[in-house]
Every structure is written in C-alpha cells, then in structure tokens.
Amino acid sequence: MNLRFIAAIAVIFLACIVQLWLSSIGIIANLILVSLVSLSFLFGFWELIFFILLALFIVNWQPAPSEEIILFALIPIGAYLLRKFSSWQAWVGNLIAICGGLVIVYGVLDFSMITANVGTFFMDLALGLLFGAAVFSILNRRATR
C-alpha cells in the first residue's frame, strides 16, 4: 500500500464529511460518488473495487441492497471502462464521467428533480466537477512525480 492509496481513502472520508456538512446546511452535492468516479481514472480495477466497497459501507443506510447502492457501485465501474476503452485524455474523461454519472443518478432516482430544481442540479454538477477535478489533479500529480 503506498501513500497514494492511503490518500485515496482519505479523499473518500473527506468527500463524506463535506457532503454531510453541505447537506446539513441545505446544499446538495454527491461528492462521494464524484470521488469514486475520479478514483476510477487513477487506480486499477481491484483498488477501485475496494474504494467502492468502502464508500458503500459508509453510505448504505439499510440492511438490503437498493437502486441507489447499485448505482453507486456501477457508475464508477462504468467510468473505469470508459477510461479503458475511450481515447480521451484521462482528465477529460474524468469530467465527462462525473457529468454522465450525476445525470444517470438523477435520471434513474428522480428525474423530476432536474426539471423542478434546475439550480440545485447545476449546483450539484458544479460542485462535483470542482471536487472531481481537484481530486484528479492532486492524486494524478502524486502518481506522476
């Protein structure tokens, strides 16, 4: 286990703390999902599986699978496949995957939230892109040093 791997675990905890704090003051942001998507562009498959399981362990709120949990698991794996099979640069793919992931989450869970609260959705998207870009930039720099 290297420092980058531990930093990725810290990112998941940080995303959780920030997401819960923002939620407590009425700001919606799906930062845990965004952090998983970004990590899928930085780590190997089995490391990603560990990050997903860790995030689901923290996020899950009931003793049974739900569509939210399934989405949380599948979207980062989808992003990993996007990274493997697309020719985009990783940082571009990261941003596209974050946008796509959030649209899929809203679309599957409650599409009316996009139409009814356009501002909330775009705030979520903007915060997600900022957080995802920061995570990618910091951890990618560590990897290339």
Partner: peptide, 27 residues
C-alpha cells in the same frame, strides 16, 4: 488489497451497523 476487500465486504454484509455509526460520527 485482497484482505482489505474481504474485510470491508465482511463488515458490509455481517456488521452494517458499524458503517451507520461511522457515518453518524462523520456527520
């Protein structure tokens, strides 16, 4: 890595309440 995956999987399946407590603590 395999051990960590197995540990989190085990906790998720058999002791999910630890995850709820952890999130409660982070909240």
């Amino acid at each position: 890595l395999g051990g960590l995956i197995a540990l989190v999987l085990f906790l998720s399946v058999f002791f999910p309440s630890y995850g709820w407590r952890l999130r409660d603590y982070l909240s």
